[in-house]
């Protein structure tokens, strides 16, 4: 038998953990000194490996292992208990905080009513396009309107609509707003004073000209017959 093949078979046999060599290999090993030495050396090596791995794998278990695990389990149990109690407590605390925050928001200090309204109305007024230019320039449209006879709204139109048409110079708006703020009870009316007039989308109603019928002159005295 080839020594190389025999030595390979020896390695395989030892690696497989077999206690004896196959018959053919054993016969060769008995007859070949080199293979016998090889077998002895490799047996020694594998025994060393087994013992070394055994020493690594069979270390003594420390006595503290289980008590420490148990204490960790107890800690976990305590945390779990805290978790069960803690959840409703957290929810309660969060609700209480929310209620307090709402109460503070509701009762927060506010500015006095007139000043507040003045500011608000002035802001509103600032947004509005100027009804009258700062310079006393009159547009053609306005000129025509002024020259034309006065056009009034139809009787069905609410009185409010034309009474809302208020022209305020820009530099007077704040003062006017202050004035409006003093107009107390009806904020709609007050606000309307600072807004532009609604565009007239209805056909104007013309007033018919006054016609004078021919007069028939009669004497006051009875006619003499």
């Amino acid at each position: 038998m080839n020594c190389n093949k025999a030595q390979q078979a020896i390695i395989d046999s030892l690696a497989a953990g077999e206690s004896t060599l196959p018959t053919e290999i054993a016969r060769h090993e008995q007859s070949c000194a080199a293979c016998r030495n090889y077998y002895e050396a490799q047996s020694r090596l594998f025994r060393s490996i087994d013992q070394g791995v055994g020493a690594i794998a069979n270390s003594s278990v420390p006595a503290s292992l289980l008590p420490v695990i148990r204490s960790r389990f107890d800690e976990q149990a305590a945390l779990a208990r805290l978790g069960i109690l803690g959840w409703p407590l957290t929810a309660l605390a969060a609700s209480a905080l929310a209620v307090i925050a709402l109460a503070i928001f509701w009762h927060r200090p506010r500015p006095t009513q007139p000043a507040y309204e003045v500011r608000q109305l002035a802001t509103e007024a600032a947004k509005v396009e100027p009804l009258v230019a700062a310079t006393p320039k009159v547009s053609k449209k306005s000129e025509r309107r002024l020259s034309e006879p006065r056009v009034s709204s139809a009787p069905s139109v609410a009185v409010d609509e034309w009474t809302q048409e208020v022209m305020v110079l820009p530099e007077e708006r704040e003062a006017f707003a202050r004035f409006v703020a003093q107009v107390p009870k009806n904020p709609v009316v007050a606000l309307a004073l600072t807004r532009p007039a609604p565009k007239e989308n209805e056909a104007p109603v013309e007033i018919a000209l006054l016609t004078i019928r021919p007069l028939e002159v009669k004497s006051l005295e009875p006619a003499e017959e």
Partner: peptide, 30 residues
């Protein structure tokens, strides 16, 4: 637990580390 410790010890070759690992493994299992 001894098996877990020994496996960890065989990898780490350190008792303290192996104990930590075994405890952690058992704790996770728990």
């Amino acid at each position: 637990s001894p098996l877990a410790f020994r496996v960890a010890r065989a990898v780490l070759r350190n008792d303290a580390d192996a104990e930590d690992v075994a405890q952690e493994a058992l704790f996770r299992a728990y």
